[in-house]
Design a protein around this nucleic acid. Sequence first.
DNA 1: TCGGCGCTGGAGAGATCATTCCATCCGCTG
DNA 2: CAGCGGATGGAATGATCTCTCCAGCGCCGA
Lengths: 192, 192
Amino acid sequence: MTSTTTRERLLGSARTLFQRQGFAATGIKQILEVSDAASASLYHFYPGGKHDLAADAIRTSGAEYQALVESVLDSAPDPCAGVRACFDGAASTVEASGYQDACPIATVASEIANTDDELRQACADVFDSWIDAAAKRFRAAGVKPAAARELAVTFIMLLEGGFLMARVRRDAAPLRRAGRTMEALVRASLDS
Amino acid sequence: MTSTTTRERLLGSARTLFQRQGFAATGIKQILEVSDAASASLYHFYPGGKHDLAADAIRTSGAEYQALVESVLDSAPDPCAGVRACFDGAASTVEASGYQDACPIATVASEIANTDDELRQACADVFDSWIDAAAKRFRAAGVKPAAARELAVTFIMLLEGGFLMARVRRDAAPLRRAGRTMEALVRASLDS
DNA sequence: TCGGCGCTGGAGAGATCATTCCATCCGCTG
DNA sequence: CAGCGGATGGAATGATCTCTCCAGCGCCGA
């Protein structure tokens, strides 16, 4: 039996709802209902309320997705196949969820970028961490540090753009094609 | 003297606020304050309220941004320089606004993609229209139709990913570098 | 068995939300 | 000048929002 604590259920529901609906559109009430928890429990674990909960959701979702991407990259024979597998996996996830689940933090990040500097910084940290993880692997494959970082930034930008396009247009094909484009860019960097 | 009607002020404020804060985080009250209009006026021009107003904001902002992109592309000597100018211009706009103004519809699009099918469709139409406009120009430069369309989709994906990255990380450099990457992709398509 | 404490149930405070309503106003036309 | 219809000011609607409070629950060490 997998026991789930109230705190875990709160965080889990919040992560899912924030990912799918964003920050402002997700109500505390809705999180409590999905979590089957009392409001006092939320404010017990997260004294800062919705804001604290969102910060935790951003950090944990960011770390979890990074671990997923790293495992995909590391289990591929080379970075070219690795990045393509990331896009293909992302496309499959988006499709499988009925175009609901894409990037775990993008919707919130876009929403609060101008209005909440603390959450904005949390999202920036997540992106930086993703970029570092990818750049490290490109370097390990022989790409020069500066180029590896640029390649990693492009990787995340293309992935985010692909997520948005797929969700809005209800079509995961562009995400897969973006994977091939990214693969070509990585290959070009490896050859030089 | 430029006379502005109440309807124009309502739509203008709504467009700006939705772009910067998203749909859910922007209140009718705030729109009315910025517009200096009465609530009855809003419901007079937009009987469907906030929803109708957002639909109009998405459509008009989408069309306006498309016109801007088209003028940049058409005034460049070739599509390579054109796409780069689009990214450079986007980066400058983001910087000049203090990282507030990026894509006019991305924040709302991301927010409502799972929850409001009518607004989602409006956003999808805008993206499709942008893609068509870019693909048309790539074809005119000699790129085969299928490749031109893929290139155009990549263009928008990279632009959207760049907007998000720039806003969240408060750094427009990735947006400019994305422009060079996109330029290289267009050039490669022209050569083949 | 008892005391302490982390945790929870439930009621509700206080603010803000989108929306409605109606009397009134303004500019146009007859 | 009379009258009509589009547009507006402002109050009030009910719903919903986040957050607080406190009594009491159950678990765990002594």
